[in-house]
Amino acid sequence: MKFPGSGKMAGHCTAFAWLLLAAAPLAAQEVGLAGILGSKAMLIINGGSPRAATVGQTLDGVRLLAVQDEQVIVEIGGRKRALRVGQHAVGAAAEGGGKIVLTADGQGHFLANGTINGTSVRFLVDTGATMISLGASDARRIGLDFNSGQRGISQTANGQVQVSRVKLDTVRIGEVTLHGVDATIHQNDLPIALLGMSFLNRMEMLRDGPTMTLKKRY
């Protein structure tokens, strides 16, 4: 099964103007930490603007429990989560199940917001990619070391590029969390992270017109 736009992400940057289009919102609620100001936390809820919260305060269902040095503790979806600046958490169903529902943009691409090892990442669903693929900047932001992985060569539209194979502790999108997911890091930047088959093979995939539903299998 291959969806429009897959396997074409190594072309010129002008080909990716569609990335500015917003993906359909996921059912789960997301909170990110933009900064810490004394005893206050600047929270980003569901992609909105940063808002200041004090300990004990609840914003749109997200409760700030504590501010501790360089991190905060929040309660989202009934669960406590620790966040550092730049990290995001998703409040959703238990990790043992769940599904992701995405709606295609005007060009038939499926985009999703998620996290890798607790850090926010924007994905393009790409069944032409063997694994999750990350550009150099995204990998550094997540804290992944190119030099620590298994080196290899990947063939792209722009020729051969050197990549490094790593294993991700957690990948979370909406209500779904997978552990131990294979990924490749590219030496150069990519316009967007690719949600490849190392994630998608562990899902049931159903395409119904402009809607794609992914349900966790294992």
Rank of each mutant, 00 (worst) to 15 (best):
A136T: 03
G7F: 02
N201V: 11
G11Y: 08
N46H: 06
I44A: 12
D105N: 08
L26D: 07
A139C: 10
G152V: 02
S49M: 11
T14A: 14
V101K: 12
G5L: 06
M205S: 14
Q187N: 04
A129L: 01
A41M: 00
M131S: 14
P50W: 01
I153M: 07
H179W: 08
G38P: 00
A183N: 02
T184A: 13
G174A: 08
T177E: 15
G35I: 03
Q68E: 15
A28L: 02
A34K: 06
T156N: 13
L102D: 02
M131K: 04
D189M: 11
A27R: 15
A129D: 00
P50I: 04
Q71Y: 10
D138T: 03
L178E: 00
A17I: 03
M1G: 14
V161L: 09
D208R: 14
W18C: 02
S198I: 00
R63M: 09
I153G: 03
V90W: 13
G86D: 01
T184P: 11
G108E: 04
H109N: 07
R207K: 13
G5H: 09
A136E: 01
G47W: 04
P191H: 10
T103N: 15
V166A: 11
A66Y: 10
G47M: 05
G56N: 03
T58E: 14
L33A: 15
I173K: 01
Q68W: 15
I116W: 05
V161R: 10
G86R: 00
G38Y: 11
H179K: 10
A53N: 13
L195G: 07
P4S: 06
G61L: 01
G77Q: 03
I132R: 05
S133R: 07
V55F: 12
G77E: 05
D182V: 05
D145L: 00
V163Q: 01
R207F: 12
I73A: 01
G128W: 01
M203S: 09
N113D: 15
G149T: 02
D69P: 04
T103F: 14
I45A: 09
I142H: 08
G143N: 07
V121I: 02
T54Q: 13
S148K: 13
L26E: 10
P50N: 06
L190G: 03
M1P: 13
A92W: 07
A136L: 08
M131P: 03
